[in-house]
């Protein structure tokens, strides 16, 4: 499937900032499930590309004159292939690395209850057990845009009973890792279908490592594994490691951020 993506991130500062710097994890790589045909990242700052330890393509963007807004525009075309949710390519990373907890994925009472519910099915048949976990999370934590913030942990989201895709992914990671299954966070895009809702088009899900299969994707928000409607952008231990933007600046005061994402199917 050929997907055309337009992703605009806009920051407005209450007063001028003197110096800004951002890590932009906004460049997809090619793999068995996707082929990047064209891609561009642009902003008023200086862009320098680098590769992080997980193999993600990153840009560091710096602006060293006075500015009261930053606009990051991403455009590209990607061909995607349905691989039944299996990322059929090796990335050289030791899977066991992804058993590590982060502040977002520390097990608590509520996440433990979920993990215990699927523990046995994961032990007897990992793949179907993880699908059970995917559904269980969707049942227990309602998708509600704006219910949580970028700092909400998995445990907090389960207690709240609602959250967004990022929370769903964190809960999945928490439970799967607790069951001993190496699992990682994936940020990316999703063909949003009708309405083209930005919240839906900018997406996050999880991947777990199954011996024999490799990395397999699980998307609790949509109760499925990734299809050709998904574009992988970056991976990490959690949101913080794969976040599209992490930034810091001198001055600027309070910021207002808005994001517009459009994913459309185009003819090839």
């Amino acid at each position: 499937m050929r997907l055309t993506i337009a992703h605009e991130t806009f920051y407005k500062f209450e007063e001028p900032a003197k110096h800004s710097i951002q890590y932009l994890r906004m460049t997809p790589g090619s793999s068995a499930c996707q082929q990047v045909l064209s891609w561009s990242v642009s902003t008023q700052g200086t862009l320098t590309p680098w590769i992080d330890g997980f193999g993600n393509s990153v840009h560091v963007s710096t602006i060293d004159n006075e500015h009261d807004e930053i606009k990051v525009v991403v455009e590209g075309v990607v061909d995607t292939f349905d691989t039944s949710g299996v990322l059929a390519s090796r990335d050289g990373l030791p899977p066991q690395l992804f058993l590590r907890d982060t502040p977002f994925t520390e097990i608590g009472e509520a996440t433990l209850a979920l993990a215990e519910e699927v523990k046995e099915s994961i032990a007897s048949d990992t793949l179907s057990g993880l699908h059970n976990l995917t559904n269980l999370i969707a049942d227990k934590v309602t998708y509600l845009s704006g219910a949580t913030t970028v700092e909400t942990s998995a445990e907090e989201a389960v207690v709240a009973g609602s959250g967004v895709c990022q929370d769903h992914a964190h809960i999945f990671l928490t439970c799967a890792r607790w069951c001993g299954i190496p699992s990682r966070y994936v940020s990316g895009y999703l063909l949003a279908g009708q309405g083209n809702d930005s919240h839906v088009a900018s997406h996050a899900w999880a991947e777990s490592y199954l011996p024999g299969l490799g990395w397999v994707s699980f998307d609790p928000t949509n109760r499925q594994s990734a299809t050709e409607e998904y574009v992988r952008l970056a991976i990490g231990f959690d949101y913080m490691g794969a976040a599209p933007v992490r930034g810091s600046r001198l001055g600027g005061g309070v910021e207002e951020m808005s994001v517009k994402v459009q994913v459309e199917q185009t003819q090839n």
Partner: peptide
């Protein structure tokens, strides 16, 4: 580097990891 590690650290240099990796 607050962009790579503890995000609220004021001690380090934002962006340093990118230069190390390059």
């Amino acid at each position: 580097d607050p962009l790579a590690f503890q995000p609220h650290s004021m001690l380090g240099v934002p962006g340093l990891l990118s230069v190390v990796r390059r």
